[in-house]
Each structure stands twice: as C-alpha cells, then as structure tokens.
Design a protein around this nucleic acid. Structure first.
Lengths: 245, 245
DNA sequence: GTCGTAAAAGTCAGACTGACTATAAGTGAA
DNA sequence: TTCACTTATAGTCAGTCTGACTTTTACGAC
C-alpha cells in the first residue's frame, strides 16, 4: 500500500461546476438534469463526479469554472454564479479546496454537449453515489436554485431568447416541484416586469397562439458577483420589517 | 526593483473574516463597526486589512477563519458564515485566493478584543482605503448582512443571552439604517416566534421595565453551512409565486 | 359552424403590512 | 404622595398581496 498520502499536504485549489438544465424523461415530463463526468484517475477512479479542474495560475475563478466546463462537457452556461467553497480536511485524501460554481443552460443549448461513456446526463433526483462530497454539493446547489428562483430571475437561464409564459411557468413548476396557477403566475410575472411581450405569437399550436416574451434586463441575469456590487440592485422581493416612515 | 513577482505563480489560499459588531460613536449613537489589522509585511505593508491568515493544511475553512480571527483580534464570534471566495488574478501581486467569512459578535463580547496600534475598530461607513480588494469585500459583507437580517435571525448575533425587544429593534434599525415602528416590530417578532420571553424584566431603567427575551432555536443561528444541509430549514419568509393547491 | 383547448382577464375572501391610536406600568421630580 | 414623563404593550384600520376560482377570448381541428 501507498502509506504516505496524508491530509497534511499544502492545500490545492480546484474549481467545479454544477450545471442544471431541463430535459424530458422517458414519459415526456420535464425534469431537472445535470451532466456528470467519470473520473479517470485516483482517487475515486471510475466514479461519477462534477466537471471541474485545478485552478490555473492565470485564470480568474469564474473563467476557470466556465473553461473547465466547456472543455469537459462542451457546455456554455447562460447563468453562472459562485456557490460555495468546500474545504473540509477529510473530503479528499489530498487536501483539496473546491470552489464550486452553479450554472443554468437552456435545453436548446445542450445540443453541443459532449456525450460519451464518460460524460452523461443524470436527472437531479437520480444522481448516483459520486466521488468526494459531490452529492452534498449537488444537494446544496439544488437548494440554492430552488431558493433563488423565488426572488430572482434565474429561471430565465433555462430558456431561450423568447418564450411563452407557459414555458416560463413550466420552469418554475419543475424546479419548485409543484403546479402553479396560470392566472396568478401571469399576474406575478407582469407585476414584477420580469419579462416583456415581443408582440409576436408562437405558431403551430393546437389552440390559441400564446404571446412570446423576452426578458427586460438580461443584465440582471448574469454575474451577481460581488465584483459587480455597485451595479447590483437589491432583491425585488426583499421585505421590510415593521418599517416606519 | 524586484522584477520577478508575476501573477502566474501557483495559487495560494488565505482565509479572512469580516466581523461586525455594534458600538456607540462619540455622540452615543450605535453604529456598525469592524476590526481591521495593519499589514506588517509587503505587499501593502502598513495599510489596514481584514484579519486573516493562510489556510493551514490540517484545518477546515471555518476553523481557519475562527482561529486566525482569534489570534489576530482576540474575538470569538457568535455567528460565522462563509461569504465568498475572491480570486481575481490581479487582486494581489501574488496569486492569492481569499476565502472570506463574515461574522457577528455582541458588543458585550468585544471586551476581550485586542486593541493596539495595529488592531483597531472602524465604523463601517468610515473604513479607510484598505489593502488588496478588501474595501469591495466589506461592501459585499455589508450587503449580505443587510439582506440576511430581513429574512433570518442573524440579528441575534449582535446580542447577548437575553435582551429586550427594544435592543433587538435597535440592531435592526442600525443595520437597516431606518427607524422601525415598535408595535409592528413586536408583532413581527412574535409571529415569527424568533424569540421567547424569559419572564424576567430588565431593571434600572427610568421607566416601565421591559421584558427580557431569549432566542428559541439558537441552533438556527449558527452554521448555515451546506455541510449541515439536512438540518437546515427553509427560510421563514420564502414566498410562493402564484402557488396552487 | 361547432367543439375543444389553452390564453388571458377578472373576481373575491383572507392574510399581511405600515401607520396610527390607546392604555399600562414603571421612575424621578415636585 | 402625586404628577409628569417615558417606554412597553395592545389594539385599530385601510391598503396591498395572495391563492383559489370563474369568465371570456381566440385560435385549430373537425
């Protein structure tokens, strides 16, 4: 046995990404899915893991997340945000601190995805046992997605340039795991002016053609990094507590 | 000149902490304050900076934040949570990725604080020009504190074991920078059952003695780490969007 | 034309919020 | 002892938001 691998080595930095999309299952139901890659070296060789790579010396963190994601899965996310830095001493035989990003991509943009024996899509509720603490990481990313969809516009990260309200609602329904009332959803979306109508209508439906929408401020969707703090507005739904005056 | 220091060295990991407390200014007004330490070596020698230290090989991230905070400032925070990992290539002449924590401590617990020529308290709105990107980091920590106080119980991190509703309200007022209606504040706090009355009353006031409260679930206050995900409840104020059934 | 379907608009009662008023319970001063 | 003062505590009320529900509209298929 190789006895020397202790956890007291100088910490190494890696950047990984949890990237979600929506895909239909066998029954045609839309479900949350994410790509995993098979580890090709020890530790945990052969197990599935999040896409990622060691941090390069001349690369910013977010750029590192994007580039390692692109090179291992072929995906370029529409939304990308830092999730958390995982650094428990015992999370790997080596001392690895993983700075994890989470990302969203539209179903229509996953066509370019690499799919092979070593890169595959999994439904979020059918993730196998992964390498390291990656199962915990995915759980946390899911929690963050579900929380954030309620007060921000991240849902748009799943959709293309234009979309119908029914499509947008479906995103919410899949992520939150419950049905939403179409009327109330429309009211919410319109009052929050998250999106605006394009004036065009979707054709080819079996019924009245739904209006197409686009989002107003695509800026708001990307890069909520503290690095852009000055330009970030406060959350739309933030409430006051017993405010006076 | 030393010409060789490029930013392409292998990344180094540091852990720093923004720790807030409430202290009275000269006029007796409570204000947000935080301790800074003077850098004793290059780069940015002599400038003020956040307390921190390189990550030790055998220390978890949060433990590293706590221990470096204790050794440089003498403070042991009541609330400690990861803030963000800062890793821009150009944020330091060396390549340093800083995993930053943010913390709260009660005014009554800052007595043990080291104060010297090289460790001093600053009001949050009077922070001088700091080393590295630490000004940006503090801005972000402030934003996070103000956001989080609205939907969580972090405010309790500023207070001792027991407190009056007026004291709790003052924390909110200072952090949010606006006055709150006492009656509405009481209603909010009671309906959210954030705290419970102890049955005791504060003495020595010039008026009717206010009841003392303590918090219900001190568990909820500490460690919102994803590492404890299973036990974390969802946010109390999280709202649904046009939910049906 | 009629039917079926989903879009889009409207209704309504209950909960919540912010502003405000009223009462109660102490201390210090007269 | 009594009064004045301050703050705790309780209550009121109108406006807004929310979830459930109903109605109307506009299209394709037949």
């Amino acid at each position: 046995m190789n006895a020397g691998v202790t956890s007291t080595r100088t910490p190494v930095l890696a950047v990984s990404t949890v990237i979600f999309t929506l895909r239909p299952d066998a029954a045609g139901e839309m479900r949350l899915a994410l790509p995993l890659v098979r580890r090709i070296r020890a530790p945990h060789q052969g197990k599935w893991a999040l896409p990622g790579a060691p941090l390069k010396a001349n690369e910013d963190l977010q750029a590192s997340a994007a580039s390692s994601l692109l090179s291992t899965t072929g995906l370029e996310p529409r939304y990308l945000e830092q999730l958390y830095a995982f650094g428990q001493v015992d999370r790997s035989p080596d001392r690895v601190v993983s700075i994890v990003y989470w990302a969203l991509i539209g179903s229509d943009e996953t066509a370019s995805a690499i799919e092979s024996e070593n890169v595959q899509w999994f439904f979020a509720d059918e993730v196998p046992e992964l390498a390291f603490d990656h199962n915990v990481i995915i759980e946390y990313a899911l929690w963050r997605l579900r929380s954030k969809i309620e007060y921000s516009r991240v849902a748009l990260g799943f959709l293309g340039e234009t979309f119908t309200l029914a499509q947008l609602r479906e995103v919410y329904e899949v992520v939150l795991g419950k049905r939403l009332d179409p009327g109330n959803f429309r009211r919410m979306v319109e009052s929050a002016s998250i999106v605006e109508p394009t004036g065009e209508y979707l054709e080819g439906t079996r019924h009245r053609p739904p209006q197409l929408y686009r989002y107003n401020a695509s800026k708001d969707l990307t890069d909520p990094d503290p690095l852009t703090l000055g330009t970030t507005s406060t959350r739309p739904n933030a409430r006051d507590l017993g405010a006076a005056s």
